[in-house]
Structure formats: C-alpha cells, structure tokens
Design a protein around this nucleic acid. Structure first.
Lengths: 348, 348
DNA sequence: CTGAAAGCGCTAACAA
DNA sequence: TTGTTAGCGCTTTCAG
C-alpha cells in the first residue's frame, strides 16, 4: 500500500487478462467483436484492478470529451431569487448523466467573463454547449458561433428563428405567447374589463413574447395598462404602483412572471385592494415555492422547466451523435416549443 | 476556409515563430527563462493562429486537470426553493475562475447517483472536490475518501471535527450555534418569555447546531417549545401549528431558516396572531428574496453564503497548490467557521 | 477475431 | 537559454 498509488492503466488490465492492450480497449468500449471468454477475462481484470479509463488520454485520440458546457449569462442577481436555473440544471444533469456526459458550469457576470467563456468554448474542452439567459445585446452568441461549438439555446434567442451563417439556431422554449394569451383570456372570461400587464425585462424574448400574447387578446387596449417590470418583485411593485395611479379602475393584472406578481400582490394588499375580488392576478412560470406561498395563492401559467432542461440536453446530445457517424437519427434536430397550462389557484 | 478546421497545435505555433516546440510551450506556460524577443515572437504566433492549448494532451502529462467537482447531494427538492446553492455556486465559480479552474457540477438524487459520483471522482477527472449538503447517513463521504480526492465540505460533516483515516476533514461553515444563541438572546432581550424553536431537518448538522444554540440560552426550557421542522415552508407551518396547540401562550419563535419562518408566519397570520406584537419571529440565513418579501419583513440571522462558497474554493485550491510543490503556503489549511450577524427587520 | 504499432498534443528531463 | 527526445494512456488502422 505504500507503493505509488497511481491508478492502473489499460496496459495493466491487458496484462492481467492475458490479452493485448487493443483487445482490452475493445472490451472497455463495449466489447463488440471480441469473443465471449476474452470479454469475461478482461471484465474481471477491470473489476479486480478497479480500472477507470483515463479520460484525458482517451480525449486526446478520440477528440470527444463527454462533457457539455452550460453557460448561464445572468449579470443580475435574478438567478438567485428564481429557482428557475436550479430546475433547468436538474433536468440537464439528469439527461447528461444517462449519456455519461459531464456538466461543466460556466457562470458569467460581466464583459470579461464573456471573453473567458468564448475562449473556453473555442478551446475544444467540451463537445457542445447549452446556453441560457440571453439578452438582446448579448455578445455571447457571436463568440459561441465563432467558437464553432454545437449549441442549444434555452429560450428563443433574439435574432429570429432563421439560420445564422448557415447553421440553424436550435433552441428550446415554452409557448410564452400562447401561455400569455390563455392567461389574459381567462381574465376576460372572469368578466374583467380593465386588464393590465406587468412586463418582464424587455431585452429578453420571453418578456417580449408574453407582452405580444397579452396584446393579441387586448387589441386596442389602453397603452396605459402596460407597465414595464423586470421579472423581480421590486419591479413588480413599482409597475403595480404605476398602474394603480394611471388606471385606478384596474380590475385584473397579468404579470410576466410569479416574482413580479408577488410584488404586485404586495402593493395591492398595501392599498387595500382585495385579491381576487377587486383585482384578479395571474403570474407566469408557476414556480411552486412562490406561487403556492403568496397570499392569496397565485394563479399562474405553468411551464415544465425541468423538462425544458432535459430536452435541451437531449437535442444537443442527438446533434453530437449525429455528427460522429450515427447517421441513423434523421435530420438535424430543430427547435422545440413546449406548451403551457394555466394552473388556477385563488388569485384569479 | 474549406480546409480541415482542426485547431492549430503547439507544433504549428513553434514553426511559425521559428522556435522549438519546447520553447513555445514555455512561453505558453508563463514564459519564464525565455528571452524577450522569442517570447514576443511566440506570443504573436499564438495570436495569429488563434492557438488554444489542448487540455487533454496537457492533462495527460501533467496529471492536473484544472477542474474541480462540485457535488450537491440533495435528494429533496429543497435545493430549488432555496437560493442557497445558487449563491454558493456563484462564490465558488468566481474563485475558480480567477485560478483558471473549471467547475464540474455533479448533482445527485439517489443511491445510484452516489456510486456514479464515487466512480467519477475516483477516475481522476478532477483535481479536487467541493461537497455539499451531507446528511448524517450519507454514503458519499466514504466514497469520496475512497476516491482519494482532496475535498472541502460545505457545512460541518456529521462525523465530528476529527481526522478520518489520518486525513483531516476540512470544511467551511457559519457559526450556526452562535448565530442561534444571538437570535434567542435577542428575543429574550425583547422581553419574550415563552420562546419556541422550529428545528431544521435534524439529520443535518446545521439544524442540530442551531437547536443546540437555542438550548444554550433556553436552559431548562419546556421541551414542548421545540417542534421539528425540515427547512421547508410546509414544515414550518406544521411545526407552528403544533407549537400553538401545545403552548398557546407562545410569544416568540426562532425558526431554523427563513423558509420555515415564512411558513410559521403564514400560520400565525391565519390564526390572527400579530407579528411581532403577539409573537416575535426570527429566521436564519437572511435569504433576501425571502426575508424581505415576507409579511412582515423577517428579522434573521445573516450568513454570507457567497463568501462561504468562495472560501471553500480557496481552501481547496490552496491545498492543491501545496500538493504540487508550492510548499510556501504554510501548513495544510484547516476548517473555517464564519461569523453571523443578526439583521433586524420588523418581525422581531 | 486478435495483436502490433503508430500516433493524438503536450510537458519535462536532459543535452547542447 | 534553447533544442532534442521520450513518453503520458489510450484508440485505431493494419496485418496476421
């Protein structure tokens, strides 16, 4: 035990099994085309020696890394108020795990970080990237494209559905616009006549899409009934105050997410408006720890966030497989938009 | 542009700069002992070619990976209600970034995952590990120790401060016990006489330590004034109800974290008890998005979570540096316990 | 079906 | 100070 504790190599496994390194390698990588008895012997040797392949050596020759970068570009602290990313990560992690791929997390906070991330991706350390939280003016997509790494985006990027330099953009998103429409229609169905919207941060497509959904239903709505928020509770409060000032007769609010809805709720309570009697409120995301804990519990548009994460990973992995020969899987995967559902609670 | 897009190698850089591969390597790795003009030439070549070192090749010979695993072992969904992990991750990420180290995220959900993580760590893919959220019966520490990877734990592990097989356990935690004492003393100072405690999940040391702190102050307290929670709002509600039933005269509550405090607050409101007039409430963590959003805003024991993450990473990196020669840095780093501060808001 | 041998791109002795 | 050279551990033709 006082020997050098260096881990056993394939060489050692081969020696112990009485085969060549090549055969040992074949067995370790699936064992196709090796006769059963040998397979068995190698397996045993692996077991006994506690052999684990050296990923570095393997990558050096295969040029695969079995690792995927997850880039979260959120300069604001929003990330932390919102369980959103944790859920996505969980979904991604689950999917990657089943494919024996590792998750390399890249958090960025400012301009410098972008450069760093770009370099890292260009460095060929990972097989692909999953990228979140793009803002409209984000330099990241450019850097990523330059790096030439297969990428799937979380949320529709701001540059439109089209191809970008002949590489089609693949993303996973929920039906923000449709979900918003459903929420507003529900308010209409409740008999509300003065329906307002608190937007999200309008440099993100999710906020824009939800606003569009609102307008789809409220054609000819009073522009004063739209107040700009930023997805935070504080933003929701501010917007709600504005709204109350501009249109005291407001009887319903659709907020761009649960967090801003919770802010709105607080202002309404403070002003003595009863929810939902005086003002009905609907959020978006159906983030359980928020929606269920507000007073009153929040009606919200649900999106399956963990599933979105899982799907992103799956699309990326499929694309990677396709690349490395497995031509079977049909064409290049394309973007996916997941449906939403309205979850009714007390607030509307 | 239609050429093979394979990235340039050191060889190419050397050729372009008119030096040997060794010299090019030296420059890329800091350039010590290379004469200025050559350094300059190599730098330029790197620039022009857009050279990025192949990490796999480098690891193969150096046996360093410039990567650290972060293991979050939280089978419950608590992770997502709580911005806790996101904050720690941010701290860790910042620190790792300044050391050019990568963050490999390992999320585990069940027994199988533990095995997988153990194998991964044993596989020598990373230089070290940062491990969170241990529960008392967790098999992970054993696996990790077996893997022989330098590790720093987040939160005091359950097996005591001592060494484990001659390797001292290093962890970073906040002063849970002291913070709890301060909170309870504050309640006493407020003139409260019937002070209750809602515990966290008692299979975690943080919950046990906070309970101990409570008892430090409330020696001879009525055992009926301690109700078991689990760090969730639902657990907090349940515990609060019990408490109200067992001791209707309760006039103060110290909850093991903000989430359970928020649950308690809800029950108190529902029962018509005014906070803080009838019952004073204190939480723990001072998680802003929670503590500031409750009604009324929550007095809480603050711990600097991001700093804890940063510190964990720093300790680990120092240990790694020490290992690889840099003997300068003094002895092996030991555990750190960070102080807490009581943040007064309205609830107490 | 199996083995021998040639590298993948890089660092680190060792020579010059 | 710089260059030469020998691998790091693995996969993958190519013979046998």
């Amino acid at each position: 035990m006082t020997e050098t504790a260096s881990r056993p190599t394939l060489e050692a496994v081969a020696a112990r099994a009485g085969v060549s390194r090549a055969t040992a390698s074949r067995v370790v990588n699936g064992g196709d085309g090796v006769r059963e008895p040998l397979v068995e012997r190698v397996r045993r040797a692996v077991e006994e020696l506690g052999y684990v392949p050296n990923q570095a050596a393997r990558s050096l020759v295969t040029r695969r890394h079995d690792a995927v970068a997850v880039v979260i570009a959120e300069p604001e602290t929003r990330v932390f108020a919102d369980p959103f990313f944790a859920l996505q990560l969980r979904g991604i992690s689950k999917e990657l795990t089943t494919h024996d791929s590792q998750l390399v997390l890249l958090l960025t906070e400012g301009r410098d970080d972008h450069v760093r991330v770009g370099r890292y991706l260009a460095g060929g350390h990972v097989d692909g990237a999953l990228v979140f939280s793009l803002h409209l003016d984000d330099p990241l997509p450019g850097l990523i494209h330059g790096a030439g790494v297969p990428t799937v985006f979380g949320g529709r990027p701001g540059w439109g559905d089209g191809a970008r330099n002949s590489v089609p953009t693949v993303y996973v998103d929920c039906d923000n616009r449709g979900g918003a429409r459903e929420a507003v229609r529900h308010l209409v169905g409740l008999g509300r006549t003065c329906i307002a919207h608190i937007t999200g941060a309008l440099d993100q497509t999710s906020a824009v899409d939800r606003l569009d959904g609102f307008r789809d239903v409220m054609v000819d709505g009073d522009p004063a009934l739209v107040a700009e928020g930023d997805f935070t509770p504080a933003g929701g409060e501010r917007a709600m105050r504005e709204l109350l000032e501009r249109r005291p007769d407001v009887d319903a609010v659709f907020a761009a997410n649960d967090l801003s809805a919770s802010g709105a709720l607080r202002v309404l309570r403070e002003r003595g408006r009863r929810v939902p009697d005086d003002v009905a409120v609907i959020g978006f995301d159906d983030m359980l720890p928020i929606a269920e804990q507000t007073d009153p519990p929040l009606t919200s548009v649900r999106q399956d966030i963990e599933e979105m994460g899982r799907l992103m990973a799956r699309l990326l992995l499929r694309r990677l497989d396709r690349r490395s020969g497995d031509a079977s899987l049909g064409g290049d995967p394309s973007s996916v938009v997941l449906p939403t559902t309205l979850v009714r609670r007390v607030s509307a």
